[in-house]
Simulated scan of single mutants.
Amino acid sequence: MAKKVLIVEDNELNLKLFCDLLRAHDYDARGVSDGREALATAREFAPDLVIMDIQLPHVSGLDLIAAMRADDALREIPVMAVTAYAAHGDEARIRAAGAQAYVSKPISVMRFVGSVEALL
């Protein structure tokens, strides 16, 4: 059975790219473009991995990661942050929030897929 990956990304082009890349590597990928839907979708979809944009409208990806870590049903799901935040200290701050991996945008396809494989 294919591993399930939930992508939380507000940029429709990035969301399509991530879903297409993962599906091409035999993952069951589902995307949400509104972070307010992320937790409910994660509970329903039960992903093996969540790929989380950090800069989202309405709710921060960091807040979503914190909410996942506080939720018994979601706390064990690994999170890979994919973000344009690449300033000094951003990776440490994102990992401290509970993300297990960090990939900066624009992504390297090989690094992106490799990070997904390493987490799964």
Rank of each mutant, 00 (worst) to 15 (best):
I54P: 02
P57D: 10
E117F: 07
I7F: 03
A97F: 00
T41Y: 04
G98T: 03
R30V: 13
L39D: 02
S33Y: 09
M52D: 05
L13E: 11
V79N: 08
I77V: 15
G31N: 09
A92W: 03
G89H: 03
A67E: 12
S104P: 07
A38V: 00
L119K: 05
R43T: 04
I54D: 02
A87Y: 12
G31P: 12
E12V: 15
F18L: 09
S104R: 06
A73F: 04
D53S: 05
R111S: 13
I65S: 07
R95W: 01
G114P: 05
R93C: 04
V103R: 03
A81G: 06
M1L: 07
D48A: 11
A86T: 14
N14H: 10
D63S: 12
R69C: 06
I65F: 01
K4Y: 12
D10Y: 02
Q55W: 03
L64H: 01
A96V: 05
G89P: 07
N11G: 07
K16F: 13
A97M: 02
A84F: 04
Q55S: 11
L74Q: 04
G61T: 05
D72Y: 01
D10G: 05
R36Q: 14
A101C: 10
F45I: 06
V109F: 06
V82C: 14
L62F: 06
K105I: 09
H88I: 13
D26R: 15
K4Q: 13
D26H: 15
F45P: 00
D90S: 10
A46M: 11
K3R: 14
V5Y: 00
V59K: 02
L22V: 10
S104Q: 12
A99L: 01
P47Q: 08
L17W: 06
L49C: 01
P57K: 10
P57V: 12
M1D: 10
M52I: 04
E9W: 05
G114L: 03
A38E: 04
V5G: 02
V32K: 12
T83W: 03
K4S: 12
D26P: 00
V113E: 09
S60L: 05
L13Y: 10
C19L: 13
D28K: 07
E91C: 08
R36A: 13
E44F: 11
L6P: 08
D63M: 03
G35M: 05
A73Q: 14
D63L: 01
F112T: 09
S115E: 15
E44P: 09
L22D: 10
A29M: 11
L120C: 15
A46F: 06
E9A: 03
N11L: 04
E76L: 13
V8S: 06
I65Y: 01
G61I: 06
D26C: 12
E12M: 12
K16R: 15
D48W: 05
A92Q: 15
R23F: 03
R43M: 08
R43L: 11
Y102L: 00
A97W: 00
A46Q: 14
E37I: 07
L17C: 03
D34P: 06
M68E: 03
A99T: 00
K4L: 10
G98F: 01
R69G: 08
M52T: 04
A118V: 04
E12G: 09
S60M: 04
E37Y: 07
V109D: 10
I77K: 02
L21C: 08
